[in-house]
Design a protein around this nucleic acid. Sequence first.
DNA 1: TTTGCTAGCTTGTTATAACAAGTCTAATTT
DNA 2: AAATTAGACTTGTTATAACAAGCTAGCAAA
Lengths: 258, 258
Amino acid sequence: MTFPLHLAISEQLRDRILDGSYRSGDRLPSEHQIMAEFAVSRITARRAISNLTQQGLVTVQKGKGVFVATQQKVTYSISSPLTFLEADIALQGVTVTVQTLVFESVTVPIEVAAILKCSIAYLQKKVLLFNGIPGCVDVTYILPELGKAYEAELREQMTFTTLERHGMTIDKLDATIECTQADYETSEQLEVTLGHPLIVYRHTAYTDDRGAIVHGESISRGDRFCYSVSIDRNRSRDLSSIGTKNRVKDSELLESLY
Amino acid sequence: MTFPLHLAISEQLRDRILDGSYRSGDRLPSEHQIMAEFAVSRITARRAISNLTQQGLVTVQKGKGVFVATQQKVTYSISSPLTFLEADIALQGVTVTVQTLVFESVTVPIEVAAILKCSIAYLQKKVLLFNGIPGCVDVTYILPELGKAYEAELREQMTFTTLERHGMTIDKLDATIECTQADYETSEQLEVTLGHPLIVYRHTAYTDDRGAIVHGESISRGDRFCYSVSIDRNRSRDLSSIGTKNRVKDSELLESLY
DNA sequence: TTTGCTAGCTTGTTATAACAAGTCTAATTT
DNA sequence: AAATTAGACTTGTTATAACAAGCTAGCAAA
């Protein structure tokens, strides 16, 4: 039960990050410097850095070095207008751009058919860019009449921004939130390393008159995004004190999302 | 821009897992077998396995081998009774046990004081065991009069089980959900590897007459737990179709949590 | 029969070595 | 002065090697 060298070193470096010796954005010692300072081989030095990477404390840039990661996150609010909107994210000083990869009418998988209660729907696959940087991969199924009517807008904006604009207010929302780790394909799309933590938001939105109108899955970078929920038994709409804790201050986010 | 060997191998093994060649619980080829099959060094073979571990596809057991991971998750529902309860998890065939590490009256940090509107509160740190296996680390601040009155029960059950039992129904709930990665301390408590994905639930619960009564943070294993939310503008209480998608069938979960 | 030990499997840790490739700066060339 | 190039950094990939330590099955001793 010996304490591994690489862990001893990464814990020591971790302490320096947490106590402020290395600040957000600072460069850590290079592999060679670690080899010298702790008198270890390169394998061990790299393993120590790898430990920090896995904890999300640092990011590595080939040819440049290892840098202390910034921790601020952008908040998706799924509370009151019952869905998140561009406007809500804009409040956090972040501009969202939609890059539609796929937008076509398809025969939906049976699970989705059971939810939307139709066998044909529009399938949209898109990448959301936040201040120009990819942060979310989204796959959404939309009722055919809505997809057809609003295609042009849906291609350019977030789904619910379009729907709200056309007077479709969501009356009910079912969602699950979980986390996963990036496989190779997703790691390429979101420009992260293999195994990077991701936060998955799976949802179904309903209106009183049409039933389920949208069903989809959003996969966002776990290091940059979080969800906030506010449920109030009395007032069904309440925007106060939602996600203030993790909100990014305007000044900080430009550097936060480099 | 060459495609790394280790990635080529891990992608190939990944395909075998996804197409069912290796099933849930099966053993993958050992490092030596991979070295032979793909004609690579041990470093590369280990790196390939490490890639799969990082994607959450396999778990490694020293002295035994590499095994395909089980993917089913237990769902915390934060929808209608406004908080999750033991009863709700029991529906999924999982028994929750509470292991209280700390239960004491403390001077709260200023952020918490601002929320609870008092400077002294009970601090409870606990580990939640699911079918006897650690799955969640929880830190909760509770109003002093409640902590004092219900200490015995709070030590043994989930917080809201106790509160509901004494007629304290939650009227409002603010929460954020995000994911992080295990640091060394948490990795020991939850018996996972360093950097293991975790899902963090930070919440404040309110009652109409007392205001904020509980504020806390739950850190669960991201590979075993997810959250479900259901918001309905009309009916403020509705248990139907919550988290059915990720619900574990009774038969499956015993093996799912070994 | 039961216990205990050993041999051979497994993964974990660490060292040395070499080459590839991205980044930056400073010297050189145009 | 501007553009190019070279060199000295950085991290990335891969190989060989050795020892430690957890697990299991089979053999031997009690």
